[in-house]
């Protein structure tokens, strides 16, 4: 918001300045006043900019710097100091050729193809249902659906670990009632287990954005549709969904970004099915492993940059694709 204030104020102050020949003292005072106003407006962005610089820009610069170096022992037993040498883009070259890293990338891509549409469809369905419900009822459900999003990832992981437990959890017992032996810890079901966990985490947030978008659809259109004999389902599919397309694109993009960075859930399931979830199962897990276990921070940062590039490119492609459809 404050950014808008800044950008709109600046051109105005600028256009009056150099364009006018010999500005009068009054105009000058007004210019000064406008400049002060502009600065005031801009100052509102400072807390954000400070945080953004400190926690995003600086780490990115540091990562870029780290990624062009390598640390090695100079032979022997490896005791004592390591030598740091500039290796240019070698770490990136290794990263682009690393089959383990790209194997993980492919894995999360396939996972995203399944999980993202399912998450979007369910979020949209929940938002449409809430929109159809009375306001008071909607408010209650909204909070309930948002609860899983509020629970920190690690806590959620522990809760699900218990839910999935074949021995003491309720889910396996529930399925047993129908004669189905469902072991959510097993390698066969682990994708379902991870997807379900991630789904509940994302559902509430996406639903909230879509619900917000639905609220802004002009109600006259619904009335007109009803007069034309359209049922609620028809209204939902032909009016509401097209209206929230922009928000759907946004939530899809966020979901894709989150999915490609999949980390918490598989890390948890590594303990219960290590034969399936290896240490390099997803790109983020591999980066973590390289940085904090193998101890190759330089390679880890190079891989992080590659992952960021892939996420950026994927987002750009999807954004362009969906925009073109709209046009």
């Amino acid at each position: 918001m404050s950014t808008t204030t800044t950008t709109s104020a600046r051109p105005e102050a600028g256009s009056r300045g150099p364009g006018a020949a010999g500005p009068s003292p009054r105009t000058r005072r007004r210019m000064a006043w406008r400049r002060i106003q502009a600065l005031k407006g801009a100052s509102l962005t400072f807390p954000f900019l400070a945080g953004f610089s400190l926690f995003v820009v600086v780490p990115v610069i540091m990562a870029l710097r780290e990624s062009v170096f390598a640390r090695r022992s100079s032979g022997g037993l490896g005791f004592g100091a390591q030598t740091v040498s500039f290796v240019g883009l070698d770490n990136f070259a290794d990263g682009f050729q690393d089959p383990v890293f790209w194997g993980g990338m492919l894995r999360v891509f396939v996972y995203a193809i399944v999980v993202v549409p399912v998450t979007q469809a369910l979020s949209l369905a929940c938002a449409l249902l809430l929109d159809a419900a009375r306001r008071r009822t909607a408010a209650r459900f909204r909070v309930v659906l948002l609860l899983p999003y509020m629970v920190p990832g690690v806590i959620a992981a522990m809760i699900w670990l218990f839910q999935y437990s074949p021995a003491v959890g309720p889910l396996s017992a529930f399925f047993r009632l129908f004669g189905v032996e469902a072991n959510f810890y097993s390698g066969e079901l682990v994708w379902v287990s991870i997807g379900n966990m991630a789904l509940w985490g994302a559902l509430g947030f996406n639903m909230l954005i879509l619900y917000g978008a639905l609220q802004s659809v002009p109600h006259e259109i619904f009335e007109a549709a009803r007069l034309d004999g359209a049922g609620e389902l028809r209204i939902a599919m032909s009016i509401k969904v097209p209206f929230v397309r922009a928000s759907l694109v946004l939530t899809s993009l966020l979901s894709i970004i989150g999915t490609l960075q999949l980390f918490n859930e598989p890390l948890l399931f590594r303990a219960v099915t290590p034969e399936t979830i290896t240490k390099d199962f997803t790109p983020a897990m591999m980066i973590y492993n390289q940085a904090f276990q193998v101890g190759n921070l330089n390679y880890a940062t190079a891989l992080s940059v590659v992952l960021a590039l892939v996420v950026g490119i994927a987002s750009a492609i999807i954004y362009r694709f969906t925009n073109r459809q709209e046009a």
Partner: peptide, 22 residues
């Protein structure tokens, strides 16, 4: 050895597969 932190997760991976009979 000098790189325990690096190889222990690999041992975990390989051990997991062996325990699962793979």
């Amino acid at each position: 050895g000098p790189d325990y932190d690096a190889w222990f997760p690999e041992l975990q991976d390989q051990w997991g597969k062996a325990v699962a009979g793979e």
